[in-house]
């Protein structure tokens, strides 16, 4: 019996061992090493100096140039989350009011661009938003403006590209939350004299707030960490945190400073997740999850 018990204990160990080995060699130590290096000094002449200091973080958090980029990263991501939410809510609502087969098809359509790499989708936006592209020709043809709209290689272009790739995540999050609402609740409101709009605003919308929050946080965090879209649709002019880190590694060689910025990025992303998690668990919406 003891041998059998020991064998039983060994089974899960053997099962997780291959993946655990890869994670313990190629994931945990590199991240830890990066963290340690973020406290090292750097000089353009001597390279990386193994002396501990907080200067890399201090440099980022006191220089208005870097703070400006941090702020731009935050507000761009917030705008993307808001755009996805406002445009996505009616889509989620519509999908849920479709019959089974059409519903599956609509969700598939929303998801299908995810199969195409983000580089190609950005390429598509470049040609659509270009000064001589179809959008600007249409706008100028209708005499709305005389000059092409400055969208491409501007913040607005980056927002469009990011909203496009993360739209599906918002819609799925809203659907899963709307799905959990008992359909008899808005009906009851209607029976008690509310009109459609009132029933929606006073019953359906408040009940879907957890999905609204979850989707917004997801899109925000994904946007904060996105690299390809700001690089391609920003054309090197819209610098966000990820692009700054990339430059630090490719053009300059101040790795310790790049490491510090990568961890500031991590704190920004995970901080929002933790905050939202707290609020969802403790707040008045906790009942929804029980």
């Amino acid at each position: 019996m003891p041998t059998r018990r020991r064998r039983l204990f060994l089974i899960p160990v053997f099962l997780v061992l291959p993946l655990l080995a890869i994670f313990l060699v190629f994931y945990l130590p590199p991240i830890a090493y990066t963290f340690i290096q973020s406290f090292y000094k750097f000089s353009p002449m001597k390279g990386i100096i193994k002396e501990w200091h907080l200067g890399n973080y201090g440099k980022f958090l006191t220089d208005s140039y870097y703070l400006g980029i941090l702020w731009r990263t935050i507000w761009l991501s917030a705008v993307v989350a808001l755009v996805c939410l406002v445009l996505g809510y009616p889509v989620a609502y519509y999908i849920l009011h479709m019959a089974g087969r059409a519903r599956g098809l609509l969700v598939l359509l929303i998801l299908s661009p995810l199969l195409v790499t983000v580089v190609i989708r950005s390429l598509g936006w470049i040609i659509l938003l270009a000064p001589t592209g179809p959008l600007n020709r249409a706008v100028m043809g209708l005499h709305i403006t005389s000059k092409p709209l400055p969208i491409l290689f501007q913040e607005s272009g980056v927002i469009i590209g990011l909203a496009h790739i993360y739209f599906a995540f918002m819609v799925l999050s809203l659907i899963s939350s709307l799905q959990r609402i008992d359909p008899s609740l808005p009906l009851a409101a209607r029976n008690l004299g509310a009109n459609t709009v009132q029933a929606f605003l006073r019953v359906t919308l408040p009940l879907s707030l957890p999905g609204v929050l979850a989707g917004s946080v997801l899109v925000f965090v994904l946007s904060v960490g996105s690299f390809v879209i700001p690089a391609m649709l920003g054309g090197g002019k819209v610098t966000v945190l990820t692009y700054l880190i990339y430059q630090q590694y490719i053009k300059f060689v101040n790795w310790p400073f790049g490491n510090a910025m990568a961890f500031i990025l991590l704190v920004l992303a995970s901080g929002i997740i933790l905050l939202a998690g707290r609020w969802l668990e403790r707040g008045k919406y906790s009942a929804v999850f029980q």
């Binding site: 590199p30 990066t34 904060v224 880190i245």
Partner: peptide, 23 residues
Amino acid sequence: LQAFFLSPLILPLVLIGVALLQF
């Protein structure tokens, strides 16, 4: 262990990239 295995989903890809590069 479960949180450890799922953690790369939360970490910015840029961080994992620079960490592997340096490693």
